[in-house]
Design a protein around this nucleic acid. Sequence first.
RNA 1: CGGGAAGUAGCGCAGCUCGGCUAGCGCGCAACGUUCGGGACGUUGAGGCCGUGGGUUCAAAUCCCACCUUCCCGACCA
Length: 421
Amino acid sequence: MYWTQYFIPTLKENPVGAEAVSHQLSLRAGLVNMLTAGVYSYLPLGLRVLKRIESVIRDEMNNAGAHEVFLPCLHPIEIWEKTGRVETMKDVMIRFEDQRGRKMCLGPTHEEIVTYVAQQYIHSYRQLPVNLYQIQTKFRDELRPRFGIVRAAEFIMKDAYSFDRDEQGLKKSYDLMYEAYKRIFKRCGLDVVIVEADSGAMGGSVSHEFMVESPIGEDAIAVCPVCNDRGGIGADFKEGDSQCSKCKHPLQKRAALEIGHVFQLGTKYSQSLNALFLDEDGKQKPMIMGCYGIGVSRLIAAVIECSHDEKGIIWPLEVAPFQVEVLPLQASDATVLDLAKKFYGEFVKHGVEVLLDDRDESAGRKFNDADLIGIPYSLIIGKRGLAEGVIEVKDRRGKNSEKISIDQAVEFCLKALGRRT
RNA sequence: CGGGAAGUAGCGCAGCUCGGCUAGCGCGCAACGUUCGGGACGUUGAGGCCGUGGGUUCAAAUCCCACCUUCCCGACCA
């Protein structure tokens, strides 16, 4: 992609009202645009990141045996009445009537809908287990949306639902998701803390939250300042009182952001929606369910929270909008620009996602924008280097760049990309 | 929903206390010229119902009232 033909509206100054680092950077790097509180448009660069994260999630979900579906966000209220959640979730539901006066809502979550699907088609233990997932927009009438896309009223979630014939099956499905989640977050460059949690309004018994440490987190975890062991916090947690289980030092409380949550639901939904199957013993039983959510759009913010410096975002390679940025410092100089285009072509040929900043702007501005949008590798091409027969390769994570002879540059980058993938 | 802060050009702000505005500044934007390795410089120019509605006044960005919106803290929250 050539920058001049693309749409990357970077901002030099912090927009007023953006306090969280991820909020500031996602606005400044031109990832998202706010329509109203808690409602955001995804601009090309932000959408690219979203798609990269989605593809990591799809990859791991598919590998774990889950099947992708796409459920509606327009729900008739009746189905919510059947599970009783019109009441328990009434504050977050965005409700309205259609032209025929039918009561509807925009789906805040999808247990009811997916259970309806299962009820329609699954009738025998022979069809179990099944795990269905989707990546979909959720709507929640948040009283107080916060920190940009961290807590939005309209946001994107991956939600998976497992159906099993018995508790053992559920545990197996649950473990499968649990392990998949660990891999997903690792591939997104995140260091997650997994915490046993309340299942709250979801119902069910066992539940785990996946969290990352972040000052904007709305939850808390306990961290040992000495051995860095980390874990969940009970309601009675008192900083300093509690001891690290490993090294016995007092634990500290740190803010953490929830990015994933898995639940063993049991039969709450299958029972109320009649999702029954005939078991081997000839008896009709409700399916045993689990549900597994990841805040996909929130993940973008979480990654930025965990990976940035004073100049901008530092994308982990796997979720970066582009892998390499080619940076001709003097776009008005034909030799420089031609070489940059040649490199660009080479990367495209090798299937590397590459951005060419072909703008005729000052070097300083291009450097700053490159740091801001945080592409993992930059290929810096300037007159000065060309005089010595070299270009520079810069790793966004580091401060310095490495001089590489022109004919070895592409290979050098490919190697770097390979090493980090 | 309680408490606090803020709304003036695309973005960031000043002006408001003490009414006199034909509303400024920086960035960005357009044109031309000079520049060209960490947000260059000059000249010219475009761009505002000063959040909305009402009131006070000869006169309102400025004073008063109401409302709307956004942000922060709290409550809430798969």
